[in-house]
Nucleic acid binder design. Structure first.
Lengths: 147, 147
DNA sequence: TTGCTTGCAAAAGGTTTGCATTAAG
DNA sequence: CTTAATGCAAACCTTTTGCAAGCAA
């Protein structure tokens, strides 16, 4: 089994959750897809792989994974859906305001944000999320050609 | 009229939108409330001020304001609602994972994030948003006392 | 065994939409 | 005048919930 999945399963158990086939499937799916899928996408894809699973379980599991901080949610203004992302290493997201495409970026240092926020707001910080909005390269071309 | 509102109205007109009494009300409300209200809250408050306005118009106007980048949306995982925030100066948000309270923070420098993201992703960046999650001071006390 | 988890379907509820009316430019 | 904006209500659709049956530990 992949190392990352192994690590993630460990975390889930450590948090006191039972390990079920469905939870493994979803975790494995998230780790191996950089598409920032919605609950529906995960559900559809797993079904096509002849995997037995319900949409409610997908939602339940994602909610649980958000609690462990292993997974992060991105609410897209573009399609109105919640997208999920395995948060294996620190990164921010870029969302296209035209097509909704979400990509990762990692060349920005957020390491001091939690400390700064803790000092400034008094909050006990447990996580963070950063997103930039703009036109993806492909949509820039498309819109340019429409002129 | 307040300077900030004056400035905002200017921006809206410059973007080619008509100025209506409802739009002024909502913009004024957002500028003068640091509560990060939902559409429903804005609607309720304006109604109590004997102001004639519909919920649909609140949503329409907020959508328009998001487009002008004058206002920013924060999707809260805590209450499942979208909160709005007049974005007069750069700042991030801290959301309490227990009570959902949202506060602003400004002691972190995001000024290079747009450039970095543009170089790294190729996106034409038009805005950004950063959020930290954790327990607010009040909820830290409450939970501590429950022990 | 024990009670957390699953799965199905129904319900919820924030947000969007259609359309006739109104008013900004 | 012309066209965009408003307001009302109905529709939408993602997400949540209730509960019986199933399965980790």
């Amino acid at each position: 089994m992949a190392e990352e999945l192994e690590h993630a399963l460990q975390q889930v158990k450590a948090a006191g959750y039972k390990m079920t086939p469905q939870r493994k499937l979803i975790l494995d799916y998230l780790i191996n897809h950089e598409t920032h899928p919605t609950a529906e996408m995960i559900y559809q894809d797993l079904q096509q792989q002849d995997e037995q699973i319900s949409l409610a379980t997908v939602y339940n599991t994602l909610e649980m994974l958000l609690g462990t901080q292993l997974v992060l949610a991105i609410d897209s203004d573009q399609d109105g859906k919640r997208h999920y992302d395995y948060f294996g290493h620190p990164h921010y997201h870029a969302i296209c305001t035209n097509c909704g495409r979400i990509v990762d970026g990692e060349n920005f240092d957020f390491s001091q944000l939690p400390n700064t926020a803790a000092n400034e707001t008094g909050y006990l910080i447990t996580g963070y999320e950063a997103t930039v909005k703009g036109l993806c390269p492909e949509c820039q071309r498309k819109l340019e050609n429409q002129k």
